[in-house]
Amino acid sequence: MAGHGSSAHAAELASRPGRDGLMSALARWAFISVSLAFLAALLFAPLATVFVTAFSRGLGDYFASFSDSDTAAAIKLTLITAAIVVPLNTIFGLAASWAIAKFDFKGKSFLITLIDLPIAVSPVISGLVYVLLFGLQGWFGAWLQEHDISIIFALPGIVLATLFVTFPYVARELIPLMEQLGNDEEEAAITLGAGGWMTFFRVTLPKIRWGLVYGVILCNARAMGEFGAVSVVSGHIRGLTNTMPLHIEILYNEYAFVSAFAVASLLTLLAVVTLVIKTLVEWRTGYRRRR
């Protein structure tokens, strides 16, 4: 769909017979304006307000927002978390898609449902389950305290909650792609004597690389932007366990709107970059995943 140029689209539309009456023109106009008005109110205005508020007191104040040491610490923590979570979920996504797309086994669709589970679960529950396990009154709470290990209200808890929330993204991107591409080339490589790893790196990886890029980038955006799950496990300690989204909340509740929206503008840019890469990947491969 998305892979074809808009000229082909236009040509296809132009070739429709009997569709040039006044009613058609009116319907077309109505559909386009209702769509644009709805998106403008719900999506474009909020996006614009992020940047308008962030720059409302000039460039100087905008950049001054990031020199605050707590803000810098929040950005650093978010980067560290993503640097741990994204590679782990990428390895998981590659392993899961290899097992699921390349082989037929019993309970495959059940396994896919389980992998998708974190998307259906409320982010608050994603954080809650780790508090129940590792919190002070949790299953391992007493043991962890005895050994002086902190998981909840510390980096490991934030990493675990983020892992949970972003768990399915790479796998969901790769499984349908690998299934669509089939096994023929891999089977040929193995038959000709290539090893498993060689087949993976030389045959499979080049085939799926664009899907992988988008999966990783989406996983990264969700990891950096996760709010609910991280909020439950973080403890909101300024400068220590505050990630960027949590820091936005604190700044916003302190009426530091320029700083709050300045930090928000960084995450908004991240989302924009994510979508640009997604669009490029779709143009490149002419393939759109069906949700």
């Binding site: 644009l36 205005a45 909020p46 989204p245």
Partner: peptide
């Protein structure tokens, strides 16, 4: 561009859409 932007709520952190909608 509109087509690509449809995925925005999916990529945008919820805290950002929360404060932005409240401001609007």
């Amino acid at each position: 561009i509109i087509d690509a932007l449809i995925d925005m709520p999916f990529a945008l952190p919820t805290a950002v859409s929360g404060i932005a909608l409240t401001a609007v």
